[in-house]
Structures are given as structure tokens and as C-alpha cells.
Design a protein around this nucleic acid. Sequence first.
DNA 1: GAGCCACCCGTTTTT
DNA 2: CGGGTGGCTC
Length: 737
Amino acid sequence: MPRRGNTRVAELLRGLNEEQRAAVEAPIGPVLVLAGAGSGKTRVITHRIAYLIARYGVRPWNILAVTFTNKAAKEMKSRLEALLGQDVQPLNVGTFHSIFARLLRKEAYRFGYSQNFVIYDSDDQLQVVKKILNRLSLGQNSYPPQMVHALISRAKNNLVTPEQYKAQARDEFEANIARVYQEYNGFLKSSDAMDFDDLITLPVYLFREYPDVLEKYQNYFQHILIDEFQDTNVAQNELVLLLGSRHRSVFVVGDDDQSIYRWRGAEVRNILEFENAFPECQVFRLEKNYRSTRLILDAAHSVVKNNRHRKEKKLWTDREGGEPLTLIEAFDETDEAQQVVYLIQQEIKKHKRNFRDFVILYRTNAQSRAIEDALRRNGISYVIVGGIRFYERKEIKDFLAYLRVIANPLDEVSLLRIINVPPRGVGPATIRKLQEYASQKQTGLVEAMAAADEIPGIQSATRNNLKDLAGLLKKYRSLRDKIGLNELVRVLNEELGLSRMYRNEGTLESLSRAENIEELLAAIAEFCRNHEEATLESFLQEVALVTDIDNWNDTSNAVTLMTLHSAKGLEFPVVFITGMEEGLFPLSRSYQDPMDFEEERRLFYVGLTRAKEKVYLSWAQTRRRYADGFNNTLSTFVREIDERYIEPWSRESGYSTMRRRRPVRQKEEVEFEPMPEYENESQEKQLYIGCYVRHQVFGRGVVTEISGQGTGAKVKVLFEDGSEKKLVLEYARLEIL
DNA sequence: GAGCCACCCGTTTTT
DNA sequence: CGGGTGGCTC
């Protein structure tokens, strides 16, 4: 056994606590690490990798480490470099999506894909669904595209093929979904395109169909490490099992309390079943928290312990005490934002904090607007993560669509996007003629454009434009091998004149579009600087899989704004969680399914445990939703926090935010009234079909159906606004009238 | 084919 | 409220 670098081994174990060290030093084999928030999860994975290399002489390229974001992957690599003092580029570190996209570039030819397949983003995917629905004449009323798309995505994540979907279909609707699913896949394939789910599922099918390929990768990825294992879905789990079954060196780390992606197919069950899949597996627990004060941990625990579906565990810390949480009550979202800003300023004054010490979290992206306004008004610099992504802006997608068609002429969605941008006199009628011609001649749209002269019924100016566009695409296609990516995009931008066009338009909006395109060019230049062998294809792949959080730069001194989901894995000295209102957080849709409701609660838990020193919670009595206001009550989750850990904040005298819209109630009364009376009453009063009830969010209604018993009991209620909702009795807090 | 207007719909959360 | 779509007119 190679014994090189014993001192190095000792060195890298130093600084780990006993629990962490045990996991890192576990003999090679399947390992399950159940790690609480802030217990040093990522640290354990990083050190385990270093340990495999230093202690066993494992070659870096035989290691596969899956992180949740590209940013985490980058950080892991740089930490490893410091730890090992050697080049770690050969390591396979990345997200599931980026790692298997790379693998598919080499292997997907077996399924008829080229090396240059494109990756369709959600918007592209939706376009395809709409197109298919149209083709099959399925009305968008009974078949809402987003819903159909979600069903297809869920099927893919669960490794259900179109054929299986069809076989399992129980009614016409499902049978039709199966048809759409099938055609959707066909369309993607003929466009040489994959969606996000394909990047995971195709490797599974590849490994199942080609045992020799599986074996090749089993021997390549000999040691597998997965972070955030609680958020893997069925297909991802299958990949891990397939690849790991040979060498059985599979090291997974997760926390069931932090599972927040059930809605996109994640299965906490994967953690529990890991021990079945690998019976010889060793289990370790990390329960010491290094991040938060004792008080924050206790408060967070008093919330999450209300979940039925969790493994009981309690984090501990030697950071005793800490400041209590502060509850902010606001009139509306503007006032809420104003108070948050005021408190940030106070924190800076009193505790000498910097902007970068703060994060403001919210449940939905739409909430960011009011907060942004307040920050801007007060001259506080901020960065916002998520929301409308840079690469999803119209002008950026247009420019990228050109690049995508140049890389892959079969990419029909992208071609149709740019065929009339800038305007070329090409409308739906011309497109239809082109498509007819293409399918007649068994050729692509680009060829059809080049042959526009042969197609009757097209304006001659349009004809010339089409031929020009086909020529342009062809020209750049051959140019891409001759000049660098950076030059290519610059020349293309000159020739197309997109940024020039926007700049000349002169409106504020078009100016910002021009600037965005220029920013894209700068991003490409940067990409070329960082990647020596940068190609058009490699850039497009990078763009398809980056997320906002990957570009989030924590060195700039600014307050960070993001959703609770995006905050996973991060930490901040001071955390604000805004919009703590019934119906917003927890979101009202979650009342209908206890599993959804518990996921909301875990999301809150994730939010609380981001904080190192201080947590502020805020809620607004009214909040503008769409056009009109909305009356709120304080979130259940806030009321679940033990009273000992939280106190209300009242505006200091002399501090006036804005005109009071309505009289303020006594704060203490509002926040700390005991659980409402009717909660207990509902246990006693009999619920029956036809009886009148009141719901905190939906208002008055009549019970139309009761099903199930005990904790699973559900009621169907027809509300006054005409909507009918199925609610879980336990969470619905129905007042019986 | 393009541009303008009226309405409609929506909000989870993301790779 | 704001973006997107579909229908209408030129």
C-alpha cells in the first residue's frame, strides 16, 4: 500500500473534529454521512478527497465529486489545491448536470446525438411543448404548457419513458401527455438538443443499454462523493448506484432537514435507501454546528421538530447564548423594506458591520422589488441573486441563439428565434413555407432558407434576406474553426449590428439592451481568458448550466438578496427573512399536502440556519399581490418558535417610516397572542359536510367532502370566491362557524 | 408582415 | 402591476 505523504495525511486531518475525522478516515467503501446544517459537510467531503489522494494514492481523475452548484465545485477545487499543494484540475468535480453533459459529449452518438448537441433551457423547452401541443391540436386550456412540461420533466426524473407513460396512462388526459412526451423527445432529438433532465437520464439509459460503457466509467469514476444527497432525484440516485456498484467507494453526505427540492423530484428516501443499496455501508453523524449561536440553533430546532417526517437529531454548539431573534411587523411591503434598511443601518452603526454581512431572504422572487427600491433610495449597495437571469434576457438569448445555430444548424428553436431578428420580413407564413419545403426535401431549415428561390409565394426582398441569413450562418460555421471564439463573436456582432441597432434606438430600455450585449461580449472575452481551449461549444455549454449563484461574488461589499432556495449552503452574520406571512411563507398551495407543508418548514429551517449571529424576521399586514392588497396574518412558522428565543421590535421614537395607513395594533398583542382559540375548538366542534368554516387565507367556505382520518384527514371546501380547495385538516386551521 | 392595443394571466422555489 | 399573447388594422 502506498504510504507516501504520512505527514501530509496527518496535516490534513488536523483541524477536524472527532466526528469529521472519523468520516474522513473511514476505510474505503460506502459511507453515509448525516450532517446537520453548519456542521462542516463540504469540509468533510473536501478532506475525504484529499485523504484518498494522500493516503491511498488515488489518482485524481478516478475521483468523481458532485456538488450542488458550480460555485461550490470551484471552491472545492481551490481548497483542495491548498490542501494538497498539487494541481487538481484532473479531478472530476461539478454538478450532476455539468459532469454528465461532458460525458454525453463523448458518448451520446450512440443515441444519435452529435458532439455539439445544444442544451435547451426552460424557455426553449416550453417552446417545444407549445409547438407539440399545437401539432397534436391539444388546446392550451385543458393542457397548460407549463403543466405539461412539468409532467414530462417529472416523468423523466423518475425514469419513466414515454412508452411506460403510455402504458400506465389511466385516462385520455394521461394518454395525451404520453403522446406529447414522445413527440417532445423526438423533436429534441431531431434538433440535436437535450433538456436538463436528459443530461441525467440519458446516461442512465446509456449505462443500462451498454454494459461495456458502464464498466468503462465504473473504472474511471472509482471513487464517488456526493454532497447534498437529500436533494438528489430518482435518476441521479440511479446514476450513483450504477456507477458505484462495482468499486463501492461511494461517499454521500446529506441532511434530511434540509431537503427543499421535493417539488422537482428530489427524494429524501435516497438517503434512507442508501443503506439498503449498500448494506456494508458505514454511517457517521455530524451534529456539532460551527456556524450559529446556540440561541439560533435552538430556535431553528423548535421549528423543525414539528415535522413528522424526519430523523430526530439535535445540533449542538459551544457558542453559548446569542442574541434573540427579532420580529418586525410592518404595514405593507414598502414599510417592511424600509424597516429592514433601517435595521441594517443600525447594525452597521452598533456592531461595525459591513454590507456584505447581510443577506435578505424571501420566498418568492417577486418580493425583491420593494426591498431593492428601499436599498437604492438609501444608497446601500446590493447584489441580487436569481430572478431574471442575465442569460435569459431577450437580447442575450437572441445573440446566443445565433451562436447556437452556428454551432448546431439543427437547432430549430434557436433558428426560429432569430430568423426575424433583426427584422427581415419573415413572418409565420414564410416560416410555414420554409418548413413545408424542408420536410418535403428531407432537409433542414437552413438549407430551405438557402433555396428560398425555389419556394413559391415569398416576397423577393424576403427571399434575399433568407439567402443572406443562410449564407451568414454558413460563413460563421466555417469561420469558427479558423478564428478564436472571442474574435468570432466580435465580428458577428459587427456584422449583425444588434448592439448598434439597440444603441441607435435611443430609449433607455434599448440602451440597456445594447449594454447587456456588450456585457455578454465581455463575458465571452473573460471566458476565453480563463479557458485556453475555449470553443464556441464549450462556451455554450457553460452558459446553459451556469446559475446566478455561480457568479455571485462575495468579495464585493454589498448586501445580498436572494430566495431561500438559493441560500442553501451559504452563511451570513446577519440574516433577514422577509414575508413571514400565512399564505406566502408557508405558501398557500402547500396547505393541501402535508409533505409540501413540511418542505416549507424545512425551507424556513434552512433560512434560519444560514445565520451566524443574528436573525430578523419580518411580516407585513398587507402586501400588494398583483393589482390589489392582501390582508395577512403572521406565519405559523414564527409562532412555532419558542417564545424564549424571539422578541418584537418596535420603532424607535423619532423614527418615522411613512404615513400610517391604519391604526397600529398593540404589537405585543399581535405577535404573542396564544394560539388562536379556534384551534382548540375545532378539535371539539364537529366538522360535517355542509358546515361553514373560515380559513385564514381563503375566507369563508362550505365543506363539501371529508376524507381520511387522524393526521391524514382532508377536507374539501368550496370558498366564497368560488374556488374549491382540498385541505389537510391538521394544517388548515379551519374555524368552524 | 408589422405595429398597436386590449386583455389576460400569473407567482413558488431551479438545473 | 407588468409581461406576454392574440386580435385587429394599415
